[in-house]
Design a protein around this nucleic acid. Structure first.
Length: 455
RNA sequence: GAGGGCGUAGCUCAGUUGGUUAGAGCGUCAGUUUGUGGCACUGAAGGCCGGGGGUUCGAGACCCCUCGCUCUCCCCA
């Protein structure tokens, strides 16, 4: 096996059928975004490394794909490059070696864009963005190094109406995709309140990291992890109570209120949560479930957080998002609140495939194949084919004069439903044979009749 | 970052305790069949058995290294 062809780990080629199925997902989500008044935005595949570093936590920084600078082999710069590379070996980033990176998500580039164009934007600015992102992760099931995100964010508005809209977008889009999901929501203020009860905001991150793992590692392991992070026995007891909250949404909120007592931060979070539960408009389309153990990794969230779980499929979350108070502050424009959601298209694809929920009509291709039975015949066929194309019907003429056998097999493999045969006889008579590949039936019609034929 | 599994024809995979010329199905091409496909039959092409080293009279198989793919954990969509 010489020169084996290959593509980078964690990336994929998409064949015709796959692209069509993916477009079905993209188009569905895009149409819902636009229905809710969101406008498209596209940003470059690469960003300045500075823009991305430090935004996704320590783990995230390691997963950013960095782009090597050009011209490192320039002999004149050799001493500097050698010194810079030494820094890289020590684990430091340096502009001498790399100053650009592939985007890691769509939210930070969006924040960068808002900061750069703040004066020109009509606020609140509602944008959607559908583009690939790259992560230097170890690929595995449902995890790729190149994958698409579909984000919708609103910046410049504190209003909880935005949360209602985004909840509704989730419900509507997944209903259109015919995919049953549960929308889990929580509020970072509740988690902050819990942290306040357990020693202060500085323990919020370790607490959220630990409780986020509850359904994976179980209560005992979570408690062990908390203890390892110097959280006292009484405080762990509070967290245990917090985690044991159960029942319907109303029951859960009730229990939480008792636990949180007079904590103002938590009460604010609960109030926001209740508002969304009471007012979101598409209750019949998807279930919204309060999940106090939901934390989400990204540390810029400050209010409502969302996560989407497909019902009946073995898959991690297929979407998520939340509210952030000050995303653009990192780029010099403070006090711009926002809230956003994201759809994980690649995972949605895998789930739709697993549950066989793609509609038949997604696959579309050539409708009519003209047989090629010689020079004069194919010339006429070409003419007639162009008329059909002008009517918007997808057609092909077989690429060379070949035996029937081959032309039929071509039509079958490409699942072309109709073939038109123009041979010697038909050419002189001004007719053509119209054959349905699926039924096998055929009829001879005049070439002029073809213009009114439906396919 | 940690740990499993797998690399044999274009694809999916067999290949016995190590044994002589490495197989099947699908696909491709040709023919049965120069104007009617799917089916069937016949035939052909197609392999440094991922790469390198070692053990052995002998390695696709055993050992070491290496590269690639895949899955799990961490983390995430």
């Amino acid at each position: 096996m010489s020169n084996k062809a290959g593509i980078p780990q964690g990336t994929r080629d998409f064949n015709a059928v796959t692209v069509q199925k993916r477009n079905y997902i993209f188009n569905t989500i895009r149409s819902v975004f636009e229905l809710y008044g969101f406008q498209p935005l596209e940003t470059p595949a690469m960003e300045n490394l500075d823009t991305l570093m430090g935004k996704y936590g320590e783990e995230g920084d390691k997963l950013i794909f960095k782009i090597l600078n050009n011209g490192l082999d320039n002999p004149a710069k050799q001493a500097q490059v050698t010194a810079d590379f030494q820094k890289v070996l020590e684990g430091k980033n340096t502009k001498g070696i790399t100053e650009r990176a592939l985007r890691y998500d769509l939210t930070i580039p969006f924040a960068r864009y808002v900061a750069m164009n703040y004066g020109q934007l009509t606020l609140p600015y509602k944008r959607y963005q559908i583009q690939p992102v790259w992560r230097a992760d170890r690929p595995q099931k449902g995890r790729y190094r190149e994958f698409y995100q579909c984000d919708a964010d609103v910046v410049g508005s504190q209003s909880l109406l935005n949360e209602l809209e985004l909840t509704s977008i989730y419900a509507t889009a997944f209903e259109k995709l015919n995919l049953p999901v549960e929308i889990r929501i929580n509020n970072r203020k509740i988690l902050a309140g819990l942290a306040e009860l357990c020693g202060g905001l500085q323990v919020m991150v370790p607490i959220t990291v630990a409780i986020d793992k509850l359904d994976k590692i179980g209560l005992e392991k979570v408690k062990e992890e908390l203890a390892a992070r110097e959280i006292s026995t009484e405080q762990i007891a509070i967290i245990e109570k917090y985690l044991s909250i159960d029942g319907s949404n109303a029951e859960r909120i009730d229990q939480l209120k008792k636990l949180m007592q007079e904590n103002a931060t938590a009460l604010k979070g609960i109030e926001e949560l209740e508002y969304i539960l009471e007012n979101h408009p598409n209750k019949n389309r998807a279930e919204v479930i309060v999940d106090f153990t939901l934390a989400r990794g990204l540390n810029y969230y400050t209010g409502t957080i969302f996560e989407i779980k497909a019902i009946g499929a073995q898959m991690g979350s297929i979407g998520g998002g939340g509210r952030y108070d000050d995303l653009t502050g990192l780029f010099g424009v403070p006090n711009v609140p926002g809230v956003g959601i994201s759809f994980g298209v690649d995972r949605i694809y895998d789930v739709l495939e697993e549950l066989q929920l793609f509609p038949e009509a997604v696959q579309k291709g050539t409708k009519v194949l003209f047989f090629n039975l010689g020079a004069a015949e194919s010339k006429k066929a070409f003419e007639l084919m162009q008329d059909l194309r002008d009517r918007g019907i997808a057609c092909e003429l077989y690429h060379e004069a070949a035996k029937f056998d081959k032309q039929f097999k071509y039509a079958e493999k490409k699942q072309v439903p109709h073939v038109i045969i123009i041979g010697n006889t038909e050419l002189t008579e001004g007719t053509c044979i119209l054959k349905n590949i699926i039924s096998g039936g055929q009829k001879t019609i005049s070439q002029t009749e073809l213009a009114s034929q439906l396919f």
